[in-house]
């Protein structure tokens, strides 16, 4: 069985070489920028000054709060909506592909273009959303131009953009569940919703976890839509960590802050996904 030990290594090597070649320098660069300090007395000249200054800043704490708000609500809502819609699609027979195409169509539109469209739709003066509200006799809203509601609507746009991602993966997963499992469930008198909760979803546990991880990471990194719609405003109401790191890198020439935020995001997301990643690893044994 000697080939059995070498074989997985052969399958692994291309990926590892590719990633190392591409990322080794950017990673070293990022860490150096973030922690290198000539004035330091340590044997290796590094310090946590940039990091310490950053976490004491009120604005950065707000950035973290906005990021967590956006990530939490966007991830959980679009994930649940993805499951519900996948289930509904799986249940119906008529017009299934019609609904599938409509529901995943936001994925097809380039984020920059759809974000620009949302931006005009939100405009309180000439946006279509306020026109619709007024048509039905409601008051117009401020949408993304008010500090108290801006982040909520940014979250809605993110949900709009990424629910199709969840839907697509979960729906594809549901389709791999053998028909006979569902049939035997319905013979046993279990209704289809219970069948989803107790049979299908547990079978798809790994896939669901992965969908959740990727959804989580995309929400954490949301950039295009915020940059186009509000640029982080009004006030700093929609400034997330990624938006802040964009400004520090390209507008304010403080790349060390960008690096620190990048590492912060990296560590935070690794901690958050570690449990899930290990869980998936355990499943196969």
């Amino acid at each position: 069985m000697k080939n059995k030990t070498y074989f997985p290594i052969i399958l692994t090597i291309p990926v590892v070489i590719f990633l190392l070649a591409l990322l080794i320098y950017p990673l070293i660069y990022t860490f150096t920028l973030a922690f290198y300090d000539e004035a330091s007395d340590n044997f290796i000249p590094f310090s946590l000054n940039v990091f310490n200054n950053l976490i004491q800043e009120e604005r950065f704490l707000k950035n973290v709060y906005h990021t967590i708000f956006l990530t939490f609500f966007s991830t959980s809502i679009s994930f649940l909506l993805g499951i519900i819609l996948a289930y509904c699609l799986d249940q119906i027979k008529i017009a299934r592909s019609f609904f599938l195409v409509i529901l995943i169509s936001p994925l097809a539109i380039m984020p920059v273009v759809s974000a620009l469209t949302w931006r005009t739709m939100f405009n309180p003066l000439y946006g279509i959303l306020n026109s619709i509200l007024k048509f039905f006799g409601f008051e117009g809203m401020e949408w993304v131009t008010d500090t108290s509601s801006a982040l909520t609507w940014i979250t809605v746009v993110d949900i709009w953009q990424w629910t199709p991602f969840c839907l697509l993966l979960i729906y594809a997963g549901l389709k791999t569940i053998p028909v006979d499992i569902k049939e035997s469930a319905s013979i046993d008198g279990i209704n289809s919703f219970k069948e989803l909760i107790y049979i299908s979803l547990p079978i798809l546990f790994n896939l669901l976890l992965i969908t959740l991880i990727f959804r989580f990471m995309e929400a954490f990194k949301a950039f295009d839509s915020i940059m186009v719609i509000t640029q982080g405003g009004p006030g700093n109401a929609t400034e997330t960590m990624v938006i802040r790191s964009y400004y520090t890198a390209f507008r304010w020439y403080k790349p060390e802050i960008t690096s620190v935020i990048g590492i912060f995001i990296l560590i935070f997301t690794i901690l958050c996904t570690r449990w899930a990643g290990t869980k998936i690893g355990e499943q196969e044994n």
Binding site: F122, P124, L125, E142, T145, T230, G233, P234
Partner: peptide, 9 residues
């Protein structure tokens, strides 16, 4: 304040 709503964007 005399500008159209949404002036902050």
């Amino acid at each position: 304040q005399q500008a159209p709503p949404g002036v902050t964007n």
